[in-house]
Nucleic acid binder design. Structure first.
Lengths: 134, 134
DNA sequence: TTTGACCTTTGACCAAACTCCAAGGTTTAT
DNA sequence: ATAAACCTTGGAGTTTGGTCAAAGGTCAAA
């Protein structure tokens, strides 16, 4: 059994983060000491590892919550349920990548069109492009 | 001269957004009516177009603020100043794209390793991967 | 015993970019 | 005149994932 500080330290996160996860229903300690201290067991540790792993590959806490629901009663779910969540996330990421890539390309275009030298910005093609009426 | 509602409608944004931009120093109306209504002129309109254009290519409002400072006194700045801001943003975007791509690749790997069928999630390789101790 | 580290709860704060609400004044068209 | 649309201000709320602060109780080592 770990106290909150021990578990937090073990995973290099803040105690406040663990309290936050508890408050938001992600991970509650399996017990409390007589004085009210949170006590986390091995299963709690496994669950925290799960959460942090999922975060590390880009899942939001809400999405992790979904995965945790499945993980809690694995036999009641199918592999396609899990894979569905992951694939949905992949699509989401791909869309965001596409958007950011578009931003990047637009900006690269602007940058390429600019002389970038010490000339006065009076006639800067980037500034012009941002305010032209068309 | 436009009142706030007219300008907002023209650019398909909320009046509250204009008030927000004013409060945060991005765009103040050039005048006020006797009753206190905001009055925006043609220059204000040009400036708003600039802001929205910059937003559309991914600049944050803080970054747009920087660009506006330059735009306000173009002769005092050089093309390289403007280009510098744009190039910095490009780098930022490239880093974010790289991060998201990594997420995507990790998740795609997980998805590929999963049968994704109706089999019980009891031994789901994705769930296993997320909680394995290693 | 003492002291400092640790723990609790509650509620507020932070970031960024809006958006909403309430109370009340102004304008416009009927 | 009337009613509805429009405007003002100030402050709070939303989202997401934390983080901080205050007040006070508990634990462990010296």
């Amino acid at each position: 059994m770990y106290r909150i500080g021990e578990l937090a330290q073990r995973f290099e996160i803040k105690t406040d983060t663990l309290r936050y996860y508890e408050k938001h229903g992600l991970l509650s300690p399996s017990g409390r000491s007589d004085s009210g201290y949170r006590l986390y067991n091995d299963e709690d540790e496994v669950k925290l590892r799960f959460i942090l792993r999922a975060k590390a590959v880009g899942f939001s806490l809400a999405q992790i919550q979904e995965l945790l629901v499945i993980d809690a009663s694995r036999a009641k779910w199918a592999c396609q349920d899990v894979k569905g969540i992951v694939e949905k996330k992949v699509v989401e990421l791909e869309q965001k990548i596409a958007e950011l890539t578009q931003f990047r390309d637009s900006l690269q275009q602007l940058a390429d069109a600019c002389c970038g030298g010490p000339e006065s910005a009076e006639h800067c093609s980037i500034l012009e492009a941002l305010e032209v009426r068309q």
